[in-house]
Simulated scan of single mutants.
Amino acid sequence: MCREPTSTNVAVIGSGSWATALVKIFSENLPKVGWWVRSEKIASHIQRFGRNPSYLSSVGFHVHRLDIRAELSSLIRDYQIIVLAMPSIFLKDTFQGVAHSLFKEKKWISSIKGLLPDDTNLVSDYLKTACNINSSDIGILSGPCHAEEVAMERLSYLTVAFNDISQARFIAGTLKRPYVSVCVSDDVMGIEYAVVLKNIFALAVGMANGLGYGDNFQAVLISNAMQEMASFLEVFCPQTRDINRSSYLGDLLVTSYSSLSRNRTLGYTIGKGCAVSEALSEMPMIAEGFFATKGVINLIGNDSLSMPIARAVYKILYEKAPAGEVFKHLHKFLS
Protein backbone atom coordinates (compact mmCIF):
# COMPACT_ATOMS: atom_id res chain seq x y z
CA MET A 1 0.00 0.00 0.00
CA CYS A 2 1.25 3.49 -0.85
CA ARG A 3 2.21 5.65 2.09
CA GLU A 4 0.65 9.10 2.06
CA PRO A 5 2.71 12.11 3.15
CA THR A 6 2.09 12.91 6.80
CA SER A 7 3.46 16.46 6.89
CA THR A 8 4.24 19.46 4.72
CA ASN A 9 7.97 19.04 5.32
CA VAL A 10 9.22 20.17 1.88
CA ALA A 11 12.69 20.83 0.51
CA VAL A 12 13.73 21.96 -2.98
CA ILE A 13 17.02 20.86 -4.57
CA GLY A 14 18.36 23.36 -7.10
CA SER A 15 19.30 27.02 -7.30
CA GLY A 16 18.22 27.99 -10.83
CA SER A 17 15.18 29.93 -11.97
CA TRP A 18 12.70 27.07 -11.69
CA ALA A 19 13.92 26.05 -8.23
CA THR A 20 13.70 29.68 -7.14
CA ALA A 21 10.13 29.94 -8.43
CA LEU A 22 9.10 26.78 -6.59
CA VAL A 23 10.69 27.96 -3.34
CA LYS A 24 8.72 31.20 -3.71
CA ILE A 25 5.45 29.24 -3.99
CA PHE A 26 6.18 26.80 -1.17
CA SER A 27 7.47 29.50 1.18
CA GLU A 28 4.24 31.47 0.77
CA ASN A 29 2.26 28.45 1.94
CA LEU A 30 4.51 26.74 4.49
CA PRO A 31 6.19 27.97 7.69
CA LYS A 32 9.58 26.52 6.68
CA VAL A 33 11.02 25.31 3.36
CA GLY A 34 14.35 23.56 2.90
CA TRP A 35 16.44 24.79 -0.02
CA TRP A 36 19.66 23.24 -1.27
CA VAL A 37 21.83 25.55 -3.36
CA ARG A 38 25.10 24.68 -5.01
CA SER A 39 27.46 26.85 -2.95
CA GLU A 40 27.87 28.46 0.44
CA LYS A 41 28.32 31.81 -1.32
CA ILE A 42 24.84 31.61 -2.84
CA ALA A 43 23.36 30.39 0.44
CA SER A 44 24.93 33.29 2.34
CA HIS A 45 23.72 35.85 -0.19
CA ILE A 46 20.12 34.61 -0.04
CA GLN A 47 20.24 34.49 3.74
CA ARG A 48 21.57 38.05 3.92
CA PHE A 49 19.60 39.78 1.18
CA GLY A 50 16.55 37.52 0.71
CA ARG A 51 17.17 37.14 -3.02
CA ASN A 52 18.84 34.66 -5.37
CA PRO A 53 21.78 36.61 -6.84
CA SER A 54 21.77 34.69 -10.13
CA TYR A 55 18.16 33.84 -10.99
CA LEU A 56 14.82 35.65 -10.57
CA SER A 57 16.54 38.26 -8.44
CA SER A 58 13.31 40.29 -8.39
CA VAL A 59 11.79 37.70 -6.05
CA GLY A 60 12.18 38.66 -2.40
CA PHE A 61 11.99 35.95 0.29
CA HIS A 62 11.13 36.08 3.96
CA VAL A 63 14.37 34.42 5.03
CA HIS A 64 12.93 33.23 8.34
CA ARG A 65 10.88 30.79 6.27
CA LEU A 66 13.92 29.36 4.48
CA ASP A 67 16.31 26.67 5.65
CA ILE A 68 19.09 27.25 3.10
CA ARG A 69 21.91 24.74 2.87
CA ALA A 70 24.81 23.94 0.56
CA GLU A 71 25.26 20.47 2.09
CA LEU A 72 22.84 17.98 0.56
CA SER A 73 22.92 14.93 2.82
CA SER A 74 21.64 16.77 5.87
CA LEU A 75 18.84 18.37 3.87
CA ILE A 76 17.63 15.01 2.56
CA ARG A 77 17.87 13.55 6.06
CA ASP A 78 15.77 16.31 7.61
CA TYR A 79 12.96 16.62 5.04
CA GLN A 80 10.26 14.19 3.96
CA ILE A 81 9.15 15.65 0.61
CA ILE A 82 12.04 16.37 -1.76
CA VAL A 83 11.50 18.34 -4.97
CA LEU A 84 14.16 18.05 -7.68
CA ALA A 85 14.47 21.24 -9.73
CA MET A 86 17.79 21.32 -11.54
CA PRO A 87 18.81 20.52 -15.14
CA SER A 88 19.00 16.78 -15.79
CA ILE A 89 22.68 17.07 -16.72
CA PHE A 90 23.53 17.87 -13.08
CA LEU A 91 21.46 15.21 -11.31
CA LYS A 92 24.01 12.41 -11.05
CA ASP A 93 26.78 14.71 -9.87
CA THR A 94 24.46 16.31 -7.34
CA PHE A 95 23.67 12.94 -5.77
CA GLN A 96 27.26 11.68 -5.87
CA GLY A 97 28.44 10.79 -2.39
CA VAL A 98 24.96 10.90 -0.82
CA ALA A 99 24.15 7.65 1.03
CA HIS A 100 21.19 5.87 -0.54
CA SER A 101 19.94 4.96 2.91
CA LEU A 102 18.88 8.60 3.25
CA PHE A 103 16.56 8.28 0.24
CA LYS A 104 14.14 5.85 1.88
CA GLU A 105 10.81 6.78 3.46
CA LYS A 106 10.65 10.03 1.47
CA LYS A 107 8.43 11.38 -1.25
CA TRP A 108 10.42 12.42 -4.31
CA ILE A 109 8.98 14.86 -6.84
CA SER A 110 10.81 15.42 -10.10
CA SER A 111 10.33 18.79 -11.73
CA ILE A 112 13.28 18.10 -14.03
CA LYS A 113 12.33 18.59 -17.67
CA GLY A 114 14.59 16.19 -19.51
CA LEU A 115 16.18 12.78 -19.89
CA LEU A 116 19.50 12.00 -18.28
CA PRO A 117 22.26 12.77 -20.80
CA ASP A 118 24.11 9.87 -22.43
CA ASP A 119 21.31 7.39 -21.82
CA THR A 120 17.56 7.11 -22.32
CA ASN A 121 16.56 7.14 -18.64
CA LEU A 122 13.79 9.26 -17.27
CA VAL A 123 14.59 10.87 -13.94
CA SER A 124 12.04 8.57 -12.31
CA ASP A 125 13.85 5.54 -13.79
CA TYR A 126 17.13 6.77 -12.33
CA LEU A 127 15.54 7.30 -8.92
CA LYS A 128 14.16 3.76 -8.97
CA THR A 129 17.18 1.90 -10.31
CA ALA A 130 20.16 3.90 -9.02
CA CYS A 131 18.70 5.20 -5.77
CA ASN A 132 16.43 2.26 -4.85
CA ILE A 133 13.38 4.48 -4.40
CA ASN A 134 9.96 2.83 -4.69
CA SER A 135 7.91 3.92 -7.70
CA SER A 136 4.99 4.70 -5.35
CA ASP A 137 7.18 7.33 -3.68
CA ILE A 138 8.01 9.18 -6.93
CA GLY A 139 5.88 11.95 -8.41
CA ILE A 140 6.14 14.45 -11.25
CA LEU A 141 5.57 18.21 -11.21
CA SER A 142 4.97 19.82 -14.60
CA GLY A 143 3.48 22.92 -16.22
CA PRO A 144 2.56 24.72 -18.35
CA CYS A 145 4.42 27.22 -16.23
CA HIS A 146 7.36 29.58 -16.76
CA ALA A 147 9.44 30.52 -13.73
CA GLU A 148 9.54 34.14 -14.89
CA GLU A 149 5.75 34.39 -14.81
CA VAL A 150 5.63 32.88 -11.31
CA ALA A 151 8.06 35.61 -10.26
CA MET A 152 5.64 38.22 -11.63
CA GLU A 153 2.68 36.38 -10.05
CA ARG A 154 0.97 36.00 -13.39
CA LEU A 155 -1.70 33.28 -13.40
CA SER A 156 0.13 29.98 -13.85
CA TYR A 157 -0.76 26.29 -13.98
CA LEU A 158 0.93 23.22 -12.51
CA THR A 159 0.19 19.50 -12.62
CA VAL A 160 1.19 17.03 -9.89
CA ALA A 161 1.22 13.33 -10.79
CA PHE A 162 1.53 10.32 -8.49
CA ASN A 163 0.40 6.74 -8.98
CA ASP A 164 -1.80 7.28 -5.92
CA ILE A 165 -3.98 10.29 -6.71
CA SER A 166 -4.41 11.08 -3.00
CA GLN A 167 -0.69 11.80 -2.77
CA ALA A 168 -0.94 14.11 -5.77
CA ARG A 169 -3.79 16.00 -4.08
CA PHE A 170 -1.74 16.38 -0.89
CA ILE A 171 1.20 17.92 -2.76
CA ALA A 172 -1.14 20.08 -4.85
CA GLY A 173 -2.41 21.63 -1.64
CA THR A 174 1.07 22.93 -0.81
CA LEU A 175 1.36 24.66 -4.19
CA LYS A 176 -1.97 26.43 -4.65
CA ARG A 177 -1.79 30.21 -4.62
CA PRO A 178 -4.12 32.94 -5.91
CA TYR A 179 -1.86 33.03 -8.99
CA VAL A 180 -1.15 29.26 -9.18
CA SER A 181 -3.77 26.69 -10.18
CA VAL A 182 -2.85 23.03 -9.65
CA CYS A 183 -4.26 19.92 -11.34
CA VAL A 184 -3.61 16.31 -10.32
CA SER A 185 -3.03 13.14 -12.34
CA ASP A 186 -2.03 9.50 -11.99
CA ASP A 187 -0.24 9.45 -15.38
CA VAL A 188 3.27 9.71 -13.92
CA MET A 189 5.28 8.30 -16.83
CA GLY A 190 3.09 9.87 -19.51
CA ILE A 191 3.46 13.37 -18.10
CA GLU A 192 7.19 12.89 -17.54
CA TYR A 193 7.66 11.84 -21.18
CA ALA A 194 5.41 14.68 -22.37
CA VAL A 195 7.68 17.17 -20.59
CA VAL A 196 10.67 15.66 -22.40
CA LEU A 197 9.01 15.63 -25.82
CA LYS A 198 7.62 19.17 -25.74
CA ASN A 199 11.15 20.55 -25.46
CA ILE A 200 12.18 18.71 -28.65
CA PHE A 201 9.17 20.05 -30.52
CA ALA A 202 9.80 23.57 -29.21
CA LEU A 203 13.26 23.36 -30.75
CA ALA A 204 11.62 22.52 -34.08
CA VAL A 205 9.21 25.47 -33.83
CA GLY A 206 12.07 27.81 -32.97
CA MET A 207 14.06 26.53 -35.95
CA ALA A 208 11.08 27.09 -38.25
CA ASN A 209 10.67 30.62 -36.96
CA GLY A 210 14.38 31.34 -37.43
CA LEU A 211 14.22 30.00 -40.97
CA GLY A 212 11.42 32.42 -41.78
CA TYR A 213 8.47 30.02 -41.91
CA GLY A 214 5.23 31.80 -41.11
CA ASP A 215 2.43 31.25 -38.64
CA ASN A 216 0.55 28.89 -40.95
CA PHE A 217 3.43 26.42 -41.11
CA GLN A 218 4.20 26.71 -37.41
CA ALA A 219 0.57 25.93 -36.52
CA VAL A 220 0.71 22.79 -38.63
CA LEU A 221 4.10 21.90 -37.15
CA ILE A 222 2.74 22.09 -33.60
CA SER A 223 -0.41 20.12 -34.41
CA ASN A 224 1.73 17.39 -36.00
CA ALA A 225 4.05 17.48 -32.98
CA MET A 226 1.03 16.78 -30.80
CA GLN A 227 0.27 13.72 -32.93
CA GLU A 228 3.87 12.53 -32.51
CA MET A 229 3.59 12.96 -28.76
CA ALA A 230 0.35 10.97 -28.66
CA SER A 231 1.85 8.15 -30.75
CA PHE A 232 4.96 7.99 -28.57
CA LEU A 233 2.96 7.85 -25.34
CA GLU A 234 0.70 5.12 -26.71
CA VAL A 235 3.76 2.95 -27.39
CA PHE A 236 5.97 3.66 -24.38
CA CYS A 237 3.39 4.20 -21.63
CA PRO A 238 -0.06 3.09 -22.77
CA GLN A 239 -2.76 4.44 -20.49
CA THR A 240 -6.08 6.16 -20.87
CA ARG A 241 -5.35 9.89 -20.96
CA ASP A 242 -6.75 13.09 -22.42
CA ILE A 243 -3.86 14.36 -24.53
CA ASN A 244 -5.59 17.74 -24.82
CA ARG A 245 -5.15 18.55 -21.13
CA SER A 246 -2.81 21.32 -20.08
CA SER A 247 -0.03 18.97 -18.89
CA TYR A 248 0.32 17.68 -22.48
CA LEU A 249 -1.05 20.12 -25.07
CA GLY A 250 -0.83 23.24 -22.90
CA ASP A 251 2.79 22.62 -21.96
CA LEU A 252 3.67 21.95 -25.60
CA LEU A 253 2.01 25.18 -26.71
CA VAL A 254 3.64 27.49 -24.19
CA THR A 255 7.08 25.97 -24.72
CA SER A 256 6.70 26.28 -28.48
CA TYR A 257 5.50 29.88 -28.78
CA SER A 258 6.75 31.71 -25.70
CA SER A 259 9.71 34.08 -25.88
CA LEU A 260 10.59 32.79 -22.38
CA SER A 261 11.17 29.27 -23.73
CA ARG A 262 14.89 28.47 -23.78
CA ASN A 263 14.30 25.54 -26.17
CA ARG A 264 12.43 27.72 -28.65
CA THR A 265 15.19 30.31 -28.30
CA LEU A 266 17.91 27.74 -29.02
CA GLY A 267 15.99 26.48 -32.06
CA TYR A 268 15.48 30.03 -33.34
CA THR A 269 19.20 30.78 -33.08
CA ILE A 270 20.04 27.63 -35.04
CA GLY A 271 17.36 28.40 -37.62
CA LYS A 272 18.91 31.84 -38.15
CA GLY A 273 22.12 30.09 -39.23
CA CYS A 274 24.13 29.82 -36.04
CA ALA A 275 26.15 26.61 -35.63
CA VAL A 276 24.74 24.27 -33.00
CA SER A 277 27.87 24.43 -30.84
CA GLU A 278 27.91 28.23 -30.98
CA ALA A 279 24.18 28.47 -30.23
CA LEU A 280 24.62 26.24 -27.18
CA SER A 281 27.54 28.29 -25.91
CA GLU A 282 25.45 31.47 -26.14
CA MET A 283 22.60 30.02 -24.05
CA PRO A 284 22.70 31.40 -20.48
CA MET A 285 20.67 28.40 -19.25
CA ILE A 286 20.33 24.73 -20.16
CA ALA A 287 17.97 23.86 -23.01
CA GLU A 288 16.86 20.34 -22.05
CA GLY A 289 15.62 19.58 -25.57
CA PHE A 290 19.17 19.25 -26.84
CA PHE A 291 19.90 16.19 -24.68
CA ALA A 292 16.33 14.89 -24.88
CA THR A 293 16.47 14.69 -28.67
CA LYS A 294 19.31 12.20 -28.65
CA GLY A 295 17.67 10.14 -25.91
CA VAL A 296 14.31 9.92 -27.63
CA ILE A 297 15.82 8.97 -31.00
CA ASN A 298 17.87 6.27 -29.25
CA LEU A 299 14.64 5.02 -27.67
CA ILE A 300 12.63 4.77 -30.88
CA GLY A 301 15.59 3.65 -33.02
CA ASN A 302 14.49 2.50 -36.46
CA ASP A 303 11.10 1.48 -35.09
CA SER A 304 7.95 1.92 -37.16
CA LEU A 305 7.22 4.91 -34.93
CA SER A 306 8.36 7.46 -37.48
CA MET A 307 8.22 10.78 -35.56
CA PRO A 308 9.52 12.88 -38.48
CA ILE A 309 9.72 16.11 -36.45
CA ALA A 310 11.86 14.60 -33.70
CA ARG A 311 14.06 12.91 -36.31
CA ALA A 312 14.46 16.18 -38.19
CA VAL A 313 15.63 17.95 -35.03
CA TYR A 314 18.10 15.12 -34.39
CA LYS A 315 19.57 15.46 -37.89
CA ILE A 316 20.16 19.16 -37.37
CA LEU A 317 21.56 18.88 -33.84
CA TYR A 318 23.65 15.72 -34.09
CA GLU A 319 24.28 15.04 -37.78
CA LYS A 320 25.03 18.68 -38.65
CA ALA A 321 22.44 18.68 -41.42
CA PRO A 322 21.53 22.20 -42.63
CA ALA A 323 18.30 23.27 -40.98
CA GLY A 324 16.93 24.77 -44.20
CA GLU A 325 17.39 21.55 -46.15
CA VAL A 326 15.94 19.41 -43.38
CA PHE A 327 12.80 21.55 -43.15
CA LYS A 328 12.29 21.52 -46.92
CA HIS A 329 12.12 17.75 -46.61
CA LEU A 330 10.11 17.75 -43.37
CA HIS A 331 7.14 19.73 -44.63
CA LYS A 332 6.27 16.86 -47.02
CA PHE A 333 5.43 14.70 -43.99
CA LEU A 334 3.13 17.23 -42.33
CA SER A 335 -0.58 17.58 -42.87
Rank of each mutant, 00 (worst) to 15 (best):
L317K: 05
D93N: 09
Q167N: 10
A208F: 03
S110W: 05
P308Q: 07
N121Y: 10
V196W: 03
L122C: 01
K41E: 15
E282M: 07
G273Q: 11
T159F: 14
G250F: 08
A21W: 11
K176S: 10
M207K: 04
V182G: 02
Y314E: 00
S231N: 15
A161S: 12
V160H: 13
M189T: 12
A194S: 14
D215Q: 05
A279D: 07
K294H: 09
L211I: 06
C183H: 13
R169E: 15
L233N: 06
T265N: 13
R262T: 01
H100T: 10
L84Y: 12
S335Q: 14
A230S: 15
S124F: 11
L141V: 08
S231D: 15
V313K: 11
V196Q: 02
D242A: 04
E325Y: 03
S335L: 09
K198R: 09
L102T: 05
S124I: 02
S135L: 01
L305A: 05
L330F: 03
A279F: 04
W35H: 02
S44T: 08
Y79F: 13
S306E: 14
G34A: 08
G250M: 07
R3Q: 15
V160Y: 12
L280C: 06
A21Q: 08
M229D: 01
N134Q: 13
R38Q: 10
C237Y: 15
G273I: 07
N209L: 11
L249D: 03
Y248Q: 01
